[in-house]
Nucleic acid binder design. Structure first.
Lengths: 231, 231
DNA sequence: TTGCTTATTGGTCGCACACTCAATAGCATC
DNA sequence: GATGCTATTGAGTGTGCGACCAATAAGCAA
C-alpha cells in the first residue's frame, strides 16, 4: 500500500510539475545514478503515475539529460558562483579545490563519471555534457582571467589552463566508485598542484587546509544494491 | 537465418569453451561496452545458446568482471610489456604516452570509463578494477624505478608518481565519449608534461612526436545505437 | 560397437523497462 | 453552480533481460 486506497489527484501547473519532475530526477541522478531515472522510479518519488512522467517527457532520454544539466548547473553555482561577492581569485580557486577534491564532492564526481560514460549511448545526454563542460570551463576560465588581470596568476591561455585543471579533477573523480580514500595527499592534491604550476604560483598556495573535519566519515565506496537493472 | 535449420552441436572442452566465452565478452566490452555483455549477445557471437553461457557463468556479473580483466590485462601487456626487450625507461615512457593518448587507445579509454562507472553497482567488477589499477600502477611504477636507478628520472616516491600519471590519463580518457579530438595539444600532452615535472625531466622530453599519421581518422565520437537497453 | 559422462540445447518463468491512449477528474472561468 | 479545458490516471503492449532445468547428443573409453 503506497498510501490511500483511493488516489487523490493533485493537479499542478505544467511548469511547476515539470520543474518538480526534473528536480526529482536530478536528485535520483546524484544519489543513485542516471540509469536509475526510470518512469517508475521518478513517478514513485513524486507519488504520481508513470504515465504522467511520460506525458512531460515522451522520451526518457530527454529527462535524463535535463536532470544531469540541472544537477550540474546547481553544483557549479555553489562551486564557482557567477558573481563572487568576496575574496580574491586565489581564494576562490583554493576554495574550489578544497571542495572539488573533498568527500562532499563525491556524488558529483560519480555523476560526471556516470554522464561521461552514458554519453556513449545517449546523444542528447552527450550534448548536455558538452554544454556543461563549456559552462564549467568558462566559469573557471573567468576566475583565472581575473586573477591574471589582477597579477595573481600568470598563464598564456586561461581557457587551456582551465581545461587542464578540469581534466585532472575528472581523473580523480573517476576513482569515486572504487575507493578514493586510500590515495595519498600528493595525489588528491594533484589538481591544486597542477593549477599552481600552470598559473605560476608557489607550491602549496592553492593546497587545501588539512580538511575541515579530520575525522570525516570519508564516504566508503558502498555498493548501492541493484540499479542498472539487468540491462 | 543464422545458418542451418538444424543446429549442429559443437562440443568443446570446458577450458576451451570458457576461454572462448571470455574472449568474446572482452571483445564486446571493448567495442560496445560492458553493459552489452548479455547472455544472448555473447551466445549469438559464438553461435551457441544463451543457456550455455549461463552454464559457465551462473552470474553474468562474473563474466563482465572477467571480460574487463582480460581486456585490460591484454592492453597493459602491449602498453607496458613486463620484460622490455629494448630501449631505456625514458623511451618506454615516451612510447607509453604516445599510445595512451592517441586514438588507438580510445576503446580502452572508454572501457576504463565504463568499468569505473559500472563499479558503482557491480561489486565483483569493482574488485577487478582495483586489481587492474594495482597491476597498471605496479607496472608503471617499475619502469619509473628502473629509470630512477639508472639516473634518468628523479622522484621521491615512484608509486605515487605512477598513480599521478594514471590519474591524468584517466582524466583524458573521460572525454573519449564526448569528443576528445577538439582538445589542444597542451591538454592532450598534460599526462606527459605531468610526468616530466614529477620525474624532474626537461619539458618536451616525453612529448609524443606530432602523431605518426597526421591525417588519422581521429575516431569521431559516433553513437553506437542502442546498448544500455532501456535500463 | 556399446555405453556413459557431460557439454549443450530448447523452452519457460518472472521481472523491469519505455511507450501508448482512451477515460477520468481537478479547477479556473463564466 | 454549471461548463470546458487539460492534467492525470489506469490499463495494456511489446521488448529484453537473467535465471532455471529437464531433455538431448557429442565424443571418449571400454
Amino acid at each position: 500500500m503506497t498510501s490511500s486506497v483511493q488516489r487523490k489527484r493533485v493537479r499542478k501547473s505544467p511548469d511547476d510539475r515539470r520543474a518538480e519532475i526534473v528536480g526529482a530526477a536530478a536528485t535520483v541522478a546524484l544519489t543513485e545514478g542516471l540509469e536509475c531515472i526510470t518512469l517508475r522510479r521518478i513517478a514513485e518519488q513524486l507519488d504520481v503515475r508513470p504515465g504522467l512522467i511520460s506525458h512531460y517527457f515522451p522520451a526518457v532520454e530527454d529527462l535524463v539529460a535535463e536532470a544531469f544539466g540541472s544537477a550540474a548547473t546547481a553544483e557549479l553555482e555553489t562551486l564557482l558562483p557567477a558573481d563572487p561577492h568576496e575574496g580574491s581569485p586565489l581564494r576562490h580557486l583554493a576554495r574550489f579545490f578544497a571542495h572539488a577534491t573533498g568527500p562532499a564532492y563525491d556524488d558529483m564526481s560519480r555523476l560526471w563519471l556516470n554522464a561521461r560514460h552514458l554519453s556513449r549511448y545517449r546523444p542528447v545526454l552527450s550534448e548536455r555534457v558538452l554544454a556543461q563542460e563549456a559552462l564549467w570551463r568558462g566559469r573557471l576560465s573567468g576566475v583565472i582571467e581575473t586573477g591574471v588581470r589582477q597579477g595573481e596568476f600568470r598563464t598564456e591561455d586561461a581557457d587551456v589552463t582551465a581545461l587542464q585543471i578540469l581534466v585532472v579533477i575528472d581523473g580523480l573523480a573517476g576513482h569515486a566508485n572504487t575507493g578514493l580514500g586510500g590515495h595519498p595527499a600528493a595525489v588528491i592534491g594533484l589538481a591544486a598542484s597542477t593549477a599552481e604550476r600552470e598559473l605560476g604560483l608557489p607550491p602549496g598556495t592553492l593546497a587545501a587546509p588539512p580538511a575541515e573535519a579530520p575525522d570525516a566519515p570519508a564516504t566508503p565506496p558502498d555498493t548501492p544494491a541493484a540499479p542498472p537493472a539487468e540491462a
